[in-house]
Amino acid sequence: MDTYKLILNGKTLKGETTTEAVDAATAEKVFKHAANEHGVHGHWTYDPETKTFTVTE
């Protein structure tokens, strides 16, 4: 398992979190669910070198 990071750049919610996942696709599902639960919808990017997802509203 690897550690993946999410950076939230929402209009009303900003922050960072991490998750352990077997691959980037699994981490993305976890992060998108969490972002949706917090009402953050926007443009997603992924940097494979740093294993970091970013969502920007």
Rank of each mutant, 00 (worst) to 15 (best):
M1T: 11
M1V: 10
M1W: 12
D2L: 11
D2F: 14
D2G: 09
D2V: 12
T3N: 05
T3Y: 06
T3R: 09
Y4D: 02
Y4M: 01
L6M: 07
L6N: 01
L6F: 08
I7T: 04
L8D: 01
L8V: 11
L8G: 02
L8R: 01
L8K: 01
N9Y: 11
N9M: 12
N9I: 15
N9R: 10
G10H: 05
G10P: 03
G10R: 04
G10N: 04
G10D: 03
K11R: 13
K11A: 12
T12F: 14
T12V: 11
T12P: 04
T12L: 11
K14N: 09
K14R: 12
K14T: 10
G15H: 15
G15R: 13
E16V: 12
E16S: 10
E16H: 09
E16N: 05
T17Q: 13
T17M: 15
T17G: 07
T18N: 05
T19P: 01
T19G: 03
T19H: 07
T19F: 12
T19N: 03
T19Y: 11
E20W: 13
E20L: 14
E20T: 12
E20P: 06
E20V: 14
A21V: 04
V22Q: 11
V22M: 12
D23N: 09
D23F: 03
D23M: 03
D23Q: 02
A24G: 04
T26F: 07
A27F: 01
A27R: 00
E28H: 11
E28T: 03
E28F: 15
K29F: 09
K29Y: 08
K29W: 09
V30P: 01
V30I: 15
V30W: 12
V30M: 10
V30L: 12
F31E: 00
F31P: 00
F31D: 00
F31S: 00
K32A: 07
K32D: 02
K32P: 00
K32C: 09
A34G: 04
A34E: 09
A35H: 03
N36Q: 13
N36A: 14
E37Q: 13
E37I: 12
E37D: 09
E37L: 14
E37G: 08
H38K: 14
H38D: 05
H38R: 14
H38E: 09
H38V: 15
G39D: 06
G39T: 04
G39E: 05
V40R: 03
V40H: 03
V40T: 03
H41C: 11
H41M: 11
H41E: 10
H41P: 03
H41I: 13
H41K: 12
H41Q: 12
H41L: 10
G42M: 03
G42C: 02
G42W: 09
G42T: 02
G42L: 03
G42H: 02
H43T: 15
H43E: 14
H43F: 14
H43I: 14
H43M: 13
W44R: 00
W44F: 04
T45Q: 09
T45A: 10
T45H: 11
T45E: 11
Y46D: 00
Y46R: 00
Y46N: 00
Y46H: 01
D47Q: 06
P48G: 06
P48L: 06
P48S: 10
P48F: 07
P48H: 09
P48E: 10
P48M: 08
E49N: 11
T50P: 02
T50S: 10
K51L: 10
K51R: 13
K51N: 05
K51P: 00
T52S: 04
T52E: 04
T52H: 02
T52I: 06
T52F: 03
T52W: 02
F53W: 05
F53S: 00
T54N: 04
T54G: 03
V55E: 00
V55N: 02
V55Y: 03
V55T: 02
T56K: 05
T56W: 09
T56L: 05
E57W: 07
E57P: 05
E57F: 07
E57Y: 06
E57V: 07
E57L: 06
E57M: 06
